[in-house]
Computed example of a mutant assay.
Amino acid sequence: MIRVGMGYDVHQLVSGRDLWMGGIKIEHTMGLLGHSDADVLIHAICDAILGAANMRDIGFHFPDTSSETEGMDSKIILRKTIELIATKGYRLVNIDATICAQRPKMNPHIPAMQQCMADVIGTDPDNISIKATTTERLGFTGREEGISAYAVALIEK
């Protein structure tokens, strides 16, 4: 049996925080605000994976009201998400994700993101497709107020 899930996440850009994307730290003048490290790419991917397994979302499993998840590295959330779907007999087949950010440019970092997440998941980096786009200076992304990410995940039993 194969199943597909879709995920979306957005976080506000603020001064004084590190920018984490796809499990790696990216040099930038601002970072994303959130209860954890606010890695929008990993969060969207986890929601897609959990959705495919009909296991709700990361807010359900890793609530932003919990002291245990405060400041949490999103790579831990990703690893635990893979463990959660395994309890129902599922494994990840592939991910297709898009980061929406005006700045910084994400393309140079994509191979490192793919390798990082593949190592966490225990899969080949070729199973993790990441694309990046701007919003042509439109909306909150274009005004550099935040970054969002979309993801689709395929799982199989």
Rank of each mutant, 00 (worst) to 15 (best):
M1R: 12
I2L: 11
I2K: 14
R3Y: 02
G7I: 00
Y8R: 13
Y8V: 11
D9C: 11
D9Y: 06
V10D: 05
Q12V: 07
Q12G: 03
Q12F: 02
L13S: 06
D18E: 15
D18S: 15
L19K: 01
G22A: 06
I24W: 06
I24E: 09
K25M: 09
I26M: 10
I26G: 08
H28N: 14
H28D: 14
H28Y: 15
M30C: 11
M30P: 03
L32Y: 04
L32W: 00
L33M: 10
G34Y: 00
H35I: 13
H35F: 13
S36K: 11
A38W: 01
L41F: 11
I42C: 08
A44S: 15
I49T: 05
L50M: 12
L50W: 05
A53L: 06
R56H: 08
F60G: 09
F60E: 08
H61C: 11
H61S: 10
D64L: 08
D64W: 14
S66E: 07
S66M: 12
S67L: 14
G71M: 05
G71D: 08
D73W: 02
D73R: 14
S74Q: 07
K75A: 09
K75E: 06
I82F: 09
I85L: 08
A86M: 11
A86Y: 02
Y90T: 00
R91Q: 13
V93H: 05
N94A: 12
A97N: 01
A97P: 04
A101Y: 03
Q102R: 13
P111S: 13
Q114V: 00
Q115Y: 03
Q115P: 00
M117H: 02
A118Q: 11
D119P: 06
V120N: 07
G122C: 10
T123Y: 03
D124W: 08
P125R: 08
N127V: 04
I128P: 00
S129M: 09
I130K: 02
K131M: 13
A132Q: 06
T133V: 15
T133G: 13
L138P: 00
G139A: 10
F140Y: 14
G142E: 08
E144W: 04
E144Y: 04
E144N: 15
E145V: 01
I147L: 03
Y150F: 14
A151Y: 01
V152S: 12
V152M: 13
V152R: 05
A153V: 03
E156P: 04
K157V: 02
K157G: 08
